[in-house]
Structure formats: structure tokens, C-alpha cells
């Protein structure tokens, strides 16, 4: 049985020491919403978290000066296959290497969408660095994301490539800092 989330405005707020991540949405029936987010240490190491809307309370985000959305290419190719990188999490492509950066499934304005966005090969890399500076609120605005998608873009994208890159770029452009 799949859980269905009806997100109206602020649907999820991830309480953390210093950094809050929330998801805004109207008219979205979100069945699946998962993404990899990584905290970059001052030494450049990345500690990844898997944000799963259906298990939001499990996520805690300590403040760092920069974060990443998606998974770096090294971790894509040489994986531990454990913990949040266990393919059992449903974020691993099996017909090729790599992890889905953002997984969204549901309906927008009554129309079904399935977006499995990711990829680590140029020029379609789905990996984004966020410099947080002094900001402490990270808002993923799904309303704006869907509104700003190109009208001719497919609602079913499950492979890396140009379309996935377009949708991913639209997604990250709607990750707002406050």
C-alpha cells in the first residue's frame, strides 16, 4: 500500500539544530518524495541524508555552510550499498550505476507525474551545491517548480538525460533560501 500525501502549503518541516527544510505545495498529491541531501564539511567531506517525506521525523540537519542536492559522482560509482545507499531504499538505478537524486511521484492538477531525476555523467549531471551563507531555512517550493516546468516536458522521466537535467535544474531553482 502506498501512502498518499496531500500537501497544502507547508507540509513538512524538518526540525534541526540550525537548518530547517520545508516543502511547499498546492494541488499536489505527492505519493513519493525522496531526495539525497548532503552536508559538506569544511574539509570537503559530504555526509549524506536521505530525505523521505513519509519518514520525515528521521531526518536531522546540522548547520553547515554548504549543502548538496544529489550524490557526487564518486559515491555514485563506488557505493557501500549500505544504510541510505542500500538499493532497498528504492533510489538506485539497477540498469546503470547511480542513485536518483530526487524522486517524485504523484499528481499535479490531476495529472500523474513520475520524476526520477539523477545522473552523474556530463553533460546531464544532476547534482547541485547550495551555499547556505547565513541562511537557515531551506524551502523546496513545489508549487513554483511545477508552474515553471516547460509545458512540453514529459510527466514521466525515469532515466538520466537531457529531460531529467531540465527538470532537475527547474527543481533546484525552486529551492529557496531564507
Amino acid at each position: 500500500m502506498r501512502l498518499v500525501f496531500f500537501l497544502i502549503l507547508i507540509s513538512a518541516s524538518l526540525t534541526a539544530q540550525n537548518l530547517h527544510l520545508k516543502v511547499n505545495a498546492h494541488e499536489v498529491e505527492m505519493e513519493v518524495f525522496m531526495l539525497y541531501i548532503g552536508e559538506v564539511s569544511k574539509y570537503g567531506d559530504i555526509t549524506y541524508e536521505l530525505y523521505d517525506l513519509s519518514a520525515q521525523s528521521s531526518l536531522d540537519l546540522p548547520y553547515t555552510s554548504s549543502m548538496v542536492l544529489g550524490v557526487d559522482s564518486t559515491s555514485q560509482v563506488i557505493s557501500s550499498f549500505e544504510g541510505i545507499f542500500d538499493p532497498l531504499q528504492g533510489m538506485y538505478w539497477t540498469w546503470q550505476n547511480g542513485y536518483i537524486a530526487v524522486k517524485m511521484e504523484g499528481k499535479y492538477l490531476g495529472e500523474e507525474f513520475v520524476y526520477h531525476l539523477g545522473g552523474f555523467r556530463e553533460p546531464f549531471v544532476c547534482y547541485h551545491i547550495i551555499e547556505l551563507a547565513e541562511h537557515s531555512l531551506l524551502t523546496i517550493d513545489l508549487d513554483a517548480f511545477f508552474e515553471s516546468l516547460p509545458s512540453d516536458i514529459s510527466r514521466h522521466i525515469m532515466s538520466p538525460g537531457s529531460e531529467a537535467k531540465t527538470v532537475f535544474d527547474t527543481f533546484v531553482s525552486n529551492v529557496l533560501l531564507d
Binding site: V77, I78, S79, F81, P87, T94, W95, Q96, N97
Partner: peptide, 16 residues
Amino acid sequence: GGLTHLDAQVMAPLHN
């Protein structure tokens, strides 16, 4: 060449 590691190859036919 979609899979660049033997570890990853193991799961490909299982899910295909």
C-alpha cells in the same frame, strides 16, 4: 557500459 562496477552489475539482471 551502463554499469561501471562489478558490485552494481549483480543487481541489474535481478531487477530487469
